Simulated assay, not measured.
Amino acid sequence: MILGFLNQKGGVGKTTLATHVAGELARTGARVLLIDADPQASALDWSERRVGEGRPRLFDVVGLAKETLHDQVPSLSRGYDHVVIDGPPRVTALARSAMLASDLVLIPVQPSPYDVWASQQVVTLVTEARVFRPELRAAFLVNRRIVNTVIGRDVGDALAGLGMPALPVSVSQRVAFAESVAIGRLVRESHPDSAAAKEIEAVASEIMNGCGR
C-alpha cells in the first residue's frame, strides 16, 4: 500500500502523522519506506535526530521532493510492504505527483473553520486525480483535535459538506507528540501507554481496514 499525507495548508501535522503511522505499520513487522516529498525535509530531519540519539531504525526514510515522484515510486517501493509519503504543502505539481503515486490519500485537517475551508482545494485535486486513477481512495483525518470542545466535536459535520469521508477516529492535540518528535522518537516509544499512542494505533488500524473511497 502507498499512503500519502497531503494538504495544501501547512502546519496541519502531516509529518508527525506520517512518521507515527509509518512507525505503527512497521511495528507489525511490515517493511516500511517513508518518502519525504516536502522540500522542508522535516521527516528527514526527524530521522537524523533519531540517529543522533542512538535510536534503532524503525523504517527507511528517503527524500524525494520531485515532480516525477509518481514515476519513481514503483521502483522505490520494491521490497517494501508499505510506502508512506509525507507530501508538500500547497497544491503544486509536486503535490499532484504525490497524489498520483498513492493508493490512499489522507488529508490531515485541524478543527478550525479556516482549515476546513482550505481543504476544498485538496478535494478538487483528488477529483482531478481520479480521472487518471479511478481507484484512488481518500479521506480526511482530523488532527490536533481539542478534547471536549464544541469545534472539536463539530468538525466532522463541517467536513461532511465537502463530499469526502472522514476517518471515524481522530488525533488530539497532545504534548506527548511534541516531546517525542523533539528527540527523534515516536509516542509509542516515549509514552507507550498514552492516549496519543492509542490514537495512532487506531488510525493505523483504520488504514489497514481499507478506509476512504
Results as ranks from 00 to 15, higher is better:
102 S>V: 03
69 L>K: 00
142 V>W: 02
190 S>I: 06
10 G>S: 09
118 A>L: 01
4 G>P: 08
196 A>D: 13
79 G>C: 07
197 A>C: 12
125 L>I: 02
180 S>H: 02
30 A>M: 11
111 P>H: 04
102 S>D: 07
153 R>M: 10
135 E>M: 05
146 I>D: 15
73 V>Q: 04
178 A>G: 12
71 D>E: 15
31 R>A: 13
166 A>I: 03
119 S>W: 00
85 I>E: 05
107 I>D: 00
163 G>I: 04
209 N>C: 08
204 A>P: 01
177 F>Y: 15
200 I>S: 03
209 N>I: 00
19 T>G: 04
173 Q>T: 13
151 I>V: 15
67 E>D: 14
104 L>D: 06
124 T>S: 11
51 V>E: 15
44 L>M: 15
144 R>H: 07
70 H>N: 14
184 G>E: 09
96 R>A: 12
67 E>H: 06
4 G>Q: 07
180 S>P: 07
39 P>V: 04
192 P>Y: 02
9 K>R: 07
189 E>D: 15
58 L>W: 08
9 K>I: 00
60 D>C: 03
158 A>N: 09
3 L>K: 09
76 L>I: 05
128 E>K: 03
70 H>D: 14
103 D>M: 03
130 R>W: 05
210 G>S: 08
81 D>N: 12
16 T>N: 07
203 V>M: 01
166 A>C: 11
52 G>Y: 07
150 V>E: 13
183 I>N: 12
181 V>R: 06
165 P>W: 02
31 R>W: 01
184 G>S: 09
118 A>S: 11
132 F>I: 13
136 L>V: 05
63 G>S: 14
20 H>A: 07
135 E>V: 01
105 V>F: 00
161 G>Y: 03
167 L>A: 12
105 V>G: 02
104 L>A: 03
145 R>A: 12
173 Q>E: 15
8 Q>T: 07
41 A>T: 14
15 T>E: 09
86 D>A: 05
75 S>T: 13
5 F>R: 01
112 S>Y: 03
11 G>T: 08
70 H>A: 15
107 I>H: 00
64 L>A: 14
88 P>D: 04
48 E>R: 14
15 T>G: 07
66 K>N: 13
97 S>R: 04
83 V>H: 04
95 A>M: 11
198 K>H: 13
117 W>I: 13
64 L>N: 09
38 D>V: 02
122 V>I: 11
96 R>C: 04
204 A>W: 00
175 V>A: 12
185 R>C: 13
73 V>L: 08
180 S>C: 04
44 L>Y: 11
182 A>R: 14
203 V>A: 03
54 G>S: 09
92 T>R: 04
199 E>M: 08
32 V>F: 02
161 G>W: 01
188 R>P: 09
103 D>L: 02
